[in-house]
Design a binder for these strands. Structure first.
Length: 498
RNA sequence: CGCGGGGUAGUAGCAAUGGCAGCUCGCCAGGCCCAUAACCUGGAGGUUGCAGGUUCGAAUCCUGCCCCCGCAACCA
């Protein structure tokens, strides 16, 4: 049995779940479910990133300890993932003791390999904020919050010899030993590695107290990004001894947003090369949302809250819509109107209406015996082919298009055959036509399963099949003519029109 | 010349990386009455940002220009 280890980034707990994170996580969940459906041994890791100055500061503002703040916000994430039916195998938190142990082990290992050295970090520091700013963030050299001149400050810290990995990484990308998708993102990293000089990375901080201590120097804590990236190891119970390494390693795919591309395609593999372990098989960076052409941001006040969307449309519908709006990997524009359009067009008028149409017709008889139907069989086969290729290449929107295609085919078939007339004059033919349609619906139940698991169950239930279907392997389920249909149930409207 | 992406029918949204330019929504006309005012058929509507080039053939490849967006080490 093939294993399939998939990860999302861990989210920073200083705020509630953001649409971007929900997007990554939904995509990952669809993949996880798809690979499970194919019979693979899936391990799906998600989590929260909880250390760093921002958390400490926020906790102080709210008169809590950092740990209390983290607990509170991590719970909100868990709740959100529950709402969206995220089928994760583990929720790792960077404040988990196992994680801290892994970070300590890994850092020691890299330190022992002489890839970490002591140095001095110089940065622009705002005394009032008690934090460093990048030159870009400053306005006329002043802190944007306090309008005070930032001062150049130095502190002792440890550096990771990132510069040593510039050439090896470049080579590995060119030889496709290190796979970054989609192509645009690969080009971006390649361009960066070719044109810019990679500098050693400050991986510890003296002033940040809320973090994991540097194992050999308690006056320092580990830089949050280094801490965070290692969750992909701690999440599968990493062990420093080679014989006790978890079987899940390496990840088969790691999904990220394009904003954290460099962390995952430069720093992360450099750390793994330092450890001498295999790199993830693939990093896939998806695009961003714009809202009616503009960047989604707090200052513009155009933030779309995923949990509110789930209330309006239902979590399952949202899972479908968000992945069908534009190709994964690219940027895409969204708006409230678009969600309504999608929902009504594809879910209410499409899948939902078809479901009800067929079941209302099916209620006219009790039994629909199994039989062969070449045209239907061919169509369903070609839909499955397109669907599978699409999902294997992370083309979610294209997989969903193939589902819509099957619904369209079935709707046309009803209009052509006019089964409500056949019922009055040719019962045998009527039963055949309905069998085909019910079988079409059964396949739709399978096809939507990774995207809308609950709705998929509802469809099976209304076909009177229920658990019978779920126990079948995919190879069997996707074949024509599994069973006769009896005692179908109309049930509730799948997607009420909005 | 910092890096990367993009400009396709209605002031709407997106497919299509060399082979007759398609889909969603909207609009117009018809059909059906099983269904959630739904579904089906037909129609109008594009010199694919501009200008050159390669090719039997270009939205797609090359060159130049115009415009938009993201990134530039800690905000998905």
């Amino acid at each position: 049995m093939n294993k399939f280890y998939i990860t999302t980034p861990i989210y920073y707990v200083n705020a509630k779940p953001h649409l971007g994170g929900v997007y990554t996580t939904l995509a990952a969940d669809v993949l996880a479910r798809w690979h499970r459906m194919k019979g693979e041994k899936v391990f799906f890791l998600i989590g929260t990133d909880e250390h760093g100055e921002k958390i400490a500061k926020k906790a102080e503002e709210q008169k809590m300890t950092p740990q209390q703040l983290c607990d509170q916000n991590a719970a909100r994430y868990e709740q959100a993932w529950d709402t969206f039916s995220i089928s994760y195998d583990r929720f790792i938190r960077t404040t988990d003791p196992e994680h801290e142990k892994t970070v300590t082990d890994v850092m020691k290992d890299i330190y022992n390999k002489k890839l970490i050295y002591k140095g001095t970090y110089h940065g622009l520091y705002c005394v009032d904020c008690e934090r460093y700013y990048t030159a870009k963030e400053l306005v006329d050299g002043c802190c944007p919050l306090h309008q005070k001149k930032a001062v150049v400050l130095s502190e002792k810290c440890y550096f990771f010899k990132l510069s040593a990995f510039q050439r090896p990484l470049l080579k590995m990308i060119l030889k496709n030993e290190w796979i970054i998708e989609p192509e645009e993102r690969r080009n971006e990293v390649l361009g960066f590695l070719k044109n810019e000089k990679l500098e050693d990375l400050a991986i510890s901080r003296e002033k940040v107290k809320w973090g994991i201590p540097v194992p050999w120097d308690n006056s320092q804590t580990i830089y949050v990004w280094i801490d965070a990236l290692l969750n992909y190891l701690s999440g599968i119970n990493w062990h420093p001894n080679e014989e006790k390494r978890p079987e899940q390693w390496p990840p088969d795919i790691q999904l990220i947003g394009k904003d954290i591309l460099k962390f995952h395609t430069i720093i992360w593999p450099a750390m793994l090369l330092s450890l001498g372990i295999p790199l993830p098989k693939k990093i896939y960076a998806h695009g961003f949302f714009t809202v009616e052409g503009q960047k989604m941001s707090k200052s513009l006040g155009n933030i779309i809250d995923p949990e509110e969307l789930a209330v309006t449309f239902g979590a399952e519908a949202l899972r479908w819509m968000i992945l069908s709006l534009f190709p994964f990997g690219q940027d895409g524009d969204i708006s409230q109107t678009k969600f309504y359009d999608k929902y009504n067009a594809e879910l209410s008028n499409g899948l939902g209406n078809f479901h009800r149409r067929v079941l209302t017709l099916a209620a006219k008889k009790d039994i629909y015996p199994l039989h062969e139907a070449d045209d239907f069989k061919r169509k369903i086969k070609s839909v499955w082919e397109k669907y599978e290729t699409s999902l294997d290449h992370l083309k979610f929107e294209s997989a969903l298009t193939s589902i819509n295609d099957l619904i369209g085919f079935c709707d046309k078939y009803i209009n052509q055959k006019e089964p409500w007339k056949l019922f009055k004059k040719d019962i045998a033919e009527y039963q055949k036509v309905l069998y085909n349609l019910l079988e079409g619906l059964r396949h739709l139940g399978w096809l939507i399963q990774p995207f809308m698991p609950e709705k998929s169950n509802q469809i099976f239930a209304s076909l009177g099949l229920d658990n019978l279907e779920k126990e079948k392997p995919l190879t069997k389920g996707k074949q024509w003519g599994q069973t006769e249909f009896k005692k179908t149930i109309i049930g509730e409207i799948l997607f009420p029109r909005l």
